[in-house]
């Protein structure tokens, strides 16, 4: 074999290796499972076996009277069609539409309140001096591997449904960390909630919801309007409707 043939073979081999390497890289990019595991966009719903909620370890200063007063505020929020906020919206009884964009993840409940945003484009909370507390608070999120970690502060102490699954309720000093992660080949979404609050919990209160993915062609049901001036509805909620006491 002369030198020309050797050089030609080396060139061909190099070209084939380069092409193969590029194709492998390109295929790797297209098929990268990490990309899909970091986007849990879709419609999600809870089922009967979706909740693992231990009892919260409340501070002794949180009295029964305080919890009863809070329950009345929750009922008021439902009665008057208020925005309901966190944590209620994550278990509102209807599916959630969750969409991830460049700057935020939006969580849209099908039947209540407005959308919730988890902001991906900033790493610090809006300053307390300019942020008016809200029923959702201010949520910022970042990816840690295949887990989206959302951090929320700035809760309004009174508005909406504030009762937390497992016990207690959100206050102005509540801090929520959520960890979102896909399970079962992307067909299940695990959200682990951890609440801390020096005025409410003796130890961090953690519980988990596991949402089932709905078919891709799912479309939300027509929104059911909430009419705070529907007297029949109000009487029903307040236990004054005919027949309410006999059932």
């Amino acid at each position: 074999m002369n030198q020309h043939r050797v050089a030609a073979c080396l060139c061909c081999a190099g070209a084939i290796v380069a092409l193969a390497s590029h194709l492998a890289t390109a295929q790797g990019r297209q098929a990268a499972p990490a990309a899909s595991s970091r986007d849990f966009s879709g419609f999600w719903e809870l089922s009967v076996d979706s909740r693992h909620v231990p009892d919260a370890n409340l501070l002794p200063t949180v009295t029964r009277a305080m919890r009863t007063a809070r329950a009345k505020k929750d009922a008021y929020a439902v009665r008057w069609c208020n925005l309901l906020g966190m944590p209620f919206v994550m278990d509102s009884g209807r599916p959630l539409d969750i969409r991830q964009g460049r700057t935020a993840v939006i969580i849209v409940p099908e039947n209540a309140s407005g959308p919730r945003y988890l902001y991906l484009d900033r790493s610090t909370h809006v300053g307390e001096d300019i942020f008016d507390p809200t029923t959702y608070g201010d949520s910022i999120a970042r990816w840690e591997g295949d887990t989206l970690v959302a951090d929320t502060t700035g809760f309004h102490p009174d508005r909406g449904i504030a009762t937390i699954p497992g016990g207690g309720y959100r206050t102005a000093t509540s801090h929520l960390v959520e960890r979102y992660r896909l399970l079962q080949d992307g067909n299940m979404l695990s959200v682990v909630f951890t609440w801390t609050d020096p005025k409410m919990f003796r130890t961090p209160h953690t519980y988990e919801f596991r949402y089932y993915r709905l078919p891709v062609d799912y479309e939300p049901r027509t929104w059911l309007p909430c009419d705070p001036f529907d007297e029949g509805r109000a009487q029903f909620l307040e236990g004054k409707a005919a027949g309410a006491a006999t059932r």
């Binding site: 020309h4 043939r5 050089a7 030609a8 073979c9 080396l10 060139c11 061909c12 190099g14 070209a15 084939i16 380069a18 092409l19 590029h22 390109a26």
Partner: peptide
């Protein structure tokens, strides 16, 4: 020739990532 073919393939292989 085989040599020219090899060179051409090498050039194409080099161009694909650039185009990509």
């Amino acid at each position: 020739s085989v040599a020219k073919l090899g060179v051409a393939l090498l050039l194409i292989a080099g161009m694909i990532p650039a185009a990509s």
